[in-house]
Design a protein around this nucleic acid. Sequence first.
DNA 1: AATACCCCCTGAGTGC
DNA 2: TGCACTCAGGGGGTAT
Length: 288
Amino acid sequence: MPELPEVETVRRGLEPAMTGARFIEVETRRPDLRFPLPPDFSKRLAGQAILSMGRRAKYLLADLSSGEVLVMHLGMTGRFLIMAPDGGVEEPGEFANEVKEDAKHDHVVFRLSNRFTITYNDVRRFGFMDLVPRAGLETSRHFKAMGIEPLGNELSGETITRLFAGKMAPLKAALLDQGLIAGLGNIYVCEALHRASLAPERAAGTLSDEQAERLSGVIREVLAEAVEAGGSTLKDYRHTDGSLGYFQHRFRVYDREGEACPTPDCRGTIERLVQSGRSTYWCRHCQK
DNA sequence: AATACCCCCTGAGTGC
DNA sequence: TGCACTCAGGGGGTAT
């Protein structure tokens, strides 16, 4: 499921269930996800309190009383199921009546002191978990080469101009490069380029100051709207009408090959092209 | 240093 | 109903 807005939605869902609680028991149903779980994983978590739930790019961070940080990445299909003491099951970002249980791919189970049970489920198992000392988090292998946070203060037109200076790589690739801006994925890169009227194949180093500024603005806008959509889903998850649903939230170009470009007065058609092995959706008529 | 490609894994969808 | 094939929102590793 995850791009940055989805990960932030998951963080917000986990926060009330996890912050302040302690791990009573951590059950691992296999020794690895994408990578082996860290040595003594369950033992290092047991008894620790969760001080706060954070996020960096697409990584979830549980700050522990032991001084370690539980680092979690959802890969392509990772999700958390939250079972309350009364037995009710929720999944951040999904409606309660749409939560699909699928025990075959339940890989890690957290049993907490507040009697909540949090289950990590991941069909494709591209997700992973790690334990890293808090003091060394920024220099740990996951974060040492990571780029700026797109919803943070660092993102601006000037920053984009500086990060992209001299780059011949296409804009699409530069925006997906987690070492430049961390947290943009395939969907939101397509959406941002379309909103900024910029062609995905254009060399990243060729943006004017004004275009870089526009790109910076639409990146914020696209991500913030998606976080907002996830948030409204959480609030409304008990409703049966799905109108505000998470993935009912539609994209302007992503997965819309052959449809009319949604830009007002544009007569173009959305095309699909493959860049670095991933699908790009765009309109050649209004993206230059 | 920058870029291109392949890989990890399972399931959904399509066409025959 | 089955089979073969393509594709999927991530990112790490290696080769060029």
